[in-house]
Design a protein around this nucleic acid. Sequence first.
DNA 1: CGACTCCGTAAGTCTAAGCTTACCGTTCGT
DNA 2: ACGAACGGTAAGCTTAGACTTACGGAGTCG
Lengths: 108, 108
Amino acid sequence: MDAYGDPGLGLLGDPTRRAIFELLARQPCSVGELATRLPISRPAVSQHLRVLKDGGLVVSRAEGTRRVHQLNPDGVTALRAYLDRVWEDALTAFQKAADNAGSEQEKQ
Amino acid sequence: MDAYGDPGLGLLGDPTRRAIFELLARQPCSVGELATRLPISRPAVSQHLRVLKDGGLVVSRAEGTRRVHQLNPDGVTALRAYLDRVWEDALTAFQKAADNAGSEQEKQ
DNA sequence: CGACTCCGTAAGTCTAAGCTTACCGTTCGT
DNA sequence: ACGAACGGTAAGCTTAGACTTACGGAGTCG
């Protein structure tokens, strides 16, 4: 399975992780600041960020003792590309189904 | 959280469910046929389809005793729209960051 | 009607993973 | 150098949910 490869879609399955993803879309953020905006502890945020980073959706830079995290443009692009591939396949499938329906009708 | 609303992204967190999603993109399919193509039992497929249907990603029609399932165009469109919104926010955030960096440099 | 096929649901099990507390390393200010 | 702030990691608990087996309902053909 996973004929299209997984561009990180699975990482956004968890609502909390998706919330972090969305917060980082609005503005780059430190771990502690994310923790204050979310109903989870700081280590939990840190763990989510690690997953997002491993998945290529987030990049981070050191800034003093803080670590500023932000979305990885390439990651979001990969997500969109995945959906576009699926979408294209679905479109051709729809087209094929419509053609078959047409020829079936012509038979009668 | 979920400031953007959830267009069904959470549903694709599970790899197996994502595999079903991708198979349905290539061609409409019955429950039993999906089960043969996947390493899980037929009831498991049925349960995944129920979730996908409730989430608006899949629609199904009866065809004899079979139930043919296929992707819901509106659902995929909603997914793309979600990513586009996030993407747009991220772009403006990038732009703002670049502007700040520029003004910071001018100060020195 | 009766047998067969296809499918959805219920109940129960079990594993993945998300969260917390506790601890330690790193960086900066004084 | 010492203390404080910020953050990553380990260990452990606990729950969500993915899966299976068993069963019942709906449609189809003889």
